[in-house]
Design a protein around this nucleic acid. Structure first.
Lengths: 323, 323
DNA sequence: TTGTAAGCGTTATCAA
DNA sequence: TTGATAACGCTTACAA
């Protein structure tokens, strides 16, 4: 691989001049610029990122930390992260935190030694320990999670979103609306969503009904079963994740109930999963890709303040007027 | 951040000795080892990856190149890649090639300047240009794609897998089996699968029937419509991707046909999508995570030869005996 | 407008 | 068993 010195020799200038041309740092004639550019092209020279990073004490890397890399929500955020990063000439480094975020500190330390410009965290378990592992030099932003006290976050107003989702169900005439909540431990996301549901139900004067899964597909059927046994006349289910929502649509049909004729189902997040069932899942959408992009831009521009995006309720086939 | 020199000073030895201890290179007493380790812990020292990479001319990075990062199949392979990489102390760098692999060369160059140990390619469009962009130093392995002439690949025997899938349908008594093929341009995967289907149909003496989508969810309904109008009596559909298979299950039901009572559906790949529909999609499985792991191990151990994994037909609810 | 030289944090070579 | 030293490829004062 050609080095900056090779280019310099070919042109007959010093490495410093080549460096200036490459980085657009003033201090060269347009004549030499052309000759340098020609030599760069001829040799196929690419600046060594490692050397550059060592010298400048920072590298064009953005870290991403997700609980699971194959998670649909995380995938969509990552997609936005990738596109924003690439548009700025940055590369994305991937870290899998694990279900309980057990690998998070180790990945954070790794990102730090790569002198990453920042880290996007897509995890429901954000701990102060993570902030500590990252050290003072490595800015972090959480995505799809509000209230991460340890560092700024990009998200929606989860409480309001769940409130609006519930209101929509209410507006369709439903009163027996069961909530399929997520893991109790993921306080930052679930608690506000539950609050929103409770507020809407209380305002309407109906009795709330909550069962808990863990946000994943397989956790929904048993929780739905409990919901149904407590309230056989249920006409709507609000699932706090699309995976649980999709599972609910499928399970309901397996149980012989029609969706949405007998029971309406509303999901949450608007991941691709929501369009993979029939009828397609109505859902409370958050703009995951745009949130991922925004997080990267914030990290790179140093404007890392928390920011709230607009949610919206998308009605597809799984919701209808109550019987 | 503490440097190796800080550790050396604290212990009262030279940086070279600290380096030897850290890397387990013979040449230190067990007494100094303990003192060094204590100092490392005390200072929270982490070797600078950039400096180390510059010096050793290689870094603990594995690149991953996928057409889209939010693709279910790619996600699952990436999951395996991540876990194998982490077990060896490597970090994963993410690249999105784009639908037509248009960003692939640029990412490959980037991986090269990071002195990545290797690249895992999950893309249906593998070009010799990619091999060129990567240069001679950067080993690559394709995953989930056979026959990539440009470099070794980890995959299943696509032709045999499609043959076996078709045979299974045949064994269930189906004769009017339509094939929902993928994009014609993704020659490496689709062509062999189509061949497998054709061979099974021909051996059985039934007429093959093929329509083409692009492997994604939305492409299936129209292709299915064409299939159905050509052969209204169809009793089985073999979709060459789970997304198309899931869409087929849903669309069939929308059209008032029962799955599997009226029509059986078989998918391909065994991604998470296959379990997200009702009835759950029977599918021809390839062990995506294990394939991703294997690719990384091959890259790191220098044993990068092509390798074929076993496929298997998984029967879930979407297939049944023909009427 | 350009060149010289130092140094980023490591590791590898050589000498002690 | 250990230390001094050079070098990896680059950027950036500073000097010319």
């Amino acid at each position: 691989m050609a080095t900056i010195r090779d280019v310099a020799n070919l042109v007959g200038v010093s490495p410093a001049t080549v460096s200036r041309v490459i980085n657009g740092v003033p201090g060269f004639s347009s004549a030499t610029r052309e000759r340098v550019e020609a030599a760069v092209a001829e040799l196929g020279y690419e600046p060594d990122t490692l050397a550059r990073g060592l010298r400048t004490m920072q590298s064009a890397v953005i870290g991403v930390l997700a609980n699971a890399v194959s998670d649909a929500l995380a995938s969509q955020v990552m997609s936005g992260v990738e596109s924003a990063a690439r548009s700025r000439g940055f590369t994305v480094m991937l870290g899998r935190a694990g279900t309980g975020a057990e690998h998070a500190p180790s990945y954070l330390r790794s990102f730090k030694t790569y002198r990453a410009a920042g880290v996007v965290v897509i995890s429901s378990a954000i701990t102060a320990e993570m902030r500590r592992a990252a050290g003072p030099r490595l800015p972090m932003m959480a995505v799809a999670i509000r209230n991460g006290a340890a560092f700024p976050s990009i998200g929606i107003d989860d409480e309001l979103a769940a409130y609006d989702g519930t209101r929509r169900l209410l507006a369709l005439g439903h009163r027996d609306i069961g909530l399929l909540a997520g893991d109790e431990r993921s306080v930052l996301v679930n608690t506000p969503r539950e609050r929103g549901y409770l507020r809407a139900m209380n305002e309407a004067g109906y009795t709330p009904l909550i069962e808990r899964g863990n946000s994943l597909y397989d956790s929904a059927p048993p929780a739905l079963g409990r919901l149904l046994s407590r309230a056989p006349g249920l006409t709507a289910v609000f699932a706090l994740s699309d995976e649980m929502g999709a599972a609910t649509v499928n399970e309901l049909q397996r149980l012989g109930r029609r969706v949405p004729d007998d029971v309406s189902v509303l999901g949450f997040d608007n991941t691709r999963t929501s369009t993979h069932v029939h009828p397609a899942l109505s859902t409370v959408a958050q703009p995951l890709e745009r949130m991922g992009e925004r997080a990267v831009l914030g990290l790179l521009d140093g404007t890392w303040q928390s920011r709230t995006f607009e949610h919206r309720v998308i009605e597809r086939g799984s919701t209808a007027l109550a019987r």
